[in-house]
Design a protein around this nucleic acid. Sequence first.
DNA 1: TAGTGGTCTAGACCACTTA
DNA 2: AAGTGGTCTAGACCACTAG
Lengths: 247, 247
Amino acid sequence: MVDASDVARASDQGTPAYVHIAQTLEQRMTSGDYPAGSRLPSGSRLCIEFGVSPMTVRRALHMLEDRGLVIARQGQGTFARSFDLSDSLFRLDFRGGEWLDESADIRLLEASMTRADDNVAHRLEVEQGQMVVHLRRLVSYDGDPAMSHTEYILYDPRRPLVEAQLQLTSLNAFLDSGGTHRFSRGFLHLTAVDLDNDSAELLQAAEGASALRLEHVFQDTDGTPVSWGWFLLRAELFRLSARLGSL
Amino acid sequence: MVDASDVARASDQGTPAYVHIAQTLEQRMTSGDYPAGSRLPSGSRLCIEFGVSPMTVRRALHMLEDRGLVIARQGQGTFARSFDLSDSLFRLDFRGGEWLDESADIRLLEASMTRADDNVAHRLEVEQGQMVVHLRRLVSYDGDPAMSHTEYILYDPRRPLVEAQLQLTSLNAFLDSGGTHRFSRGFLHLTAVDLDNDSAELLQAAEGASALRLEHVFQDTDGTPVSWGWFLLRAELFRLSARLGSL
DNA sequence: TAGTGGTCTAGACCACTTA
DNA sequence: AAGTGGTCTAGACCACTAG
C-alpha cells in the first residue's frame, strides 16, 4: 500500500508522475525502444512498471495522444506514431510586440450594404444577391500599415443581430483579450499571396510583394456562417511558430 | 451513492461526462454567463452541480485549459479567457493529397561540406568557419516541383553522428509516417516570402512569386542544435488551417 | 473469454493564495 | 484558516477487439 505523498516523492523532484511517465515513454520512442508503429505496453503493465494507478498512466498517455506522438485504439492497444511535420501546431506571432496595444490604430475604410456575389453567397451560405454587410479595415502600428481586413457579414432581417454581430466580428473582439464576446465556432486558412495593386497601396508595400492571407469563417453557435473575410498581413511583420518536442 | 453506470447514463447519450461539462462551460462563456476575465465556479462547486467526482471536473477543465479558453491559477481559481486569434493552432495541409505518397519524388540537389558562415554558425551555435554538412533537396509531385529544402547539419568530429543525423534529418524521417526516427526537440517558423531568382527557377515559378517559408531548427535530446534549414513551399499547394470552437 | 483502452468514483494529501 | 487548483489512489464498470 502506497499513499499519495510517497508517490509524489517517488519520481524525484517535484515533477508529477504523469509528466515523468510521458517523458520516459517519449524518450523510449525517440531512442528506438518503441519504434514507430509498434505497440506500447498496455495500461495495466505501465501501472505495474511505474507503480501508479490507472488514472495516472491514462493521463500520461492522454498527453502523448494530444501531442500526436501516440495513437490509442480501443481493444487493440496504444501505438507509437512517427512525428509528422504537417501535424505541427503553429501559433501566429506578431513580430515586435503584442497584437493590439496602444500603438495600434484601427481605421474603418468601408462599411456598406451590398448584394452578395457568387463567392460571398457561397461562403455565407445565402442566396446570391442577398444583402450583406461589407467592411474593410486597416490596422497600423505606429503609423505603419500592418494588415488589412475585408469582411462580409450576414444580414438577416428576420433576426436583426447585425449590431451584435458587428461587435462580435470587430477586430477588438478577437484580437483584444479584454473583449467580452468570442466566437464559438469557425475555421481559419492561412496562405501566402502576392499583393494586388489595391492592397499593396493600402499596406504601403510594393505590388506583388508577399503577404500572409488569413481567411476566416466565423459561425454562430448553431453552425450558421455569420462572417467571412480575410486579413492580409505584411509578411515581414508576422510569422507562425511552433515548438517541437518535450514541453 | 451513484455508481459508474448511472453516471454514464446521466448526461444523455454516450457522451462522456467530462465532454458534457466542458461543452456546458464553454457555452456559458460564449453566451456571456462567464464573461472574459471572470472566475468560473470552483472545482468543488462544479462537482456538486454536475454530480460528478473531482477527477471528472478536473478533466473537463483541463480540456478547456488546453484549448486556451480558460486559465487556472492555483489558489485563486479558474478564469475565463477571451479567444485570441494569435493563439489559434494551425495545421499545415498539402492541397490535393498526402504529404508524401507514391507520386512524391525527392531529388538531392546538393550534398557537401562547407564552412559555416555567420548565419549558419549562429543557428547551429558553433563557431564561424566550422565545417558543416550542406544539403539541398527538391520535392516534386507528379513531376511538378512543390517544395525545396535547404539544410545545414552539425558536423562534430568528436561525436561522429553525421550518418545517423543525416537519416534523422532526412525528409522521410519527418514527412513519412513510416519512419523510425523522429525529432525530440526543435522549433518551426513559417512566413511568406518572395522567391528569389534561384528558387523560382527551381520551383518553376515566376521570380517574385509568393511562397511559404518554413524554417526549422532540430535539436538533439540535450538541446544542441543539430540541423537548421528551411523549406520553400509553393504558395498554391500549401496552406495552414485551423478549426475554432467546439471539437 | 481475456485483454485492451475509456470512463468514473469518493475519497486523500499537497501547494498555493487570500484574508 | 478557509478555499482554491494539482495530483493521486485502488478499485469499478463499460465498449471494443482479438483469438
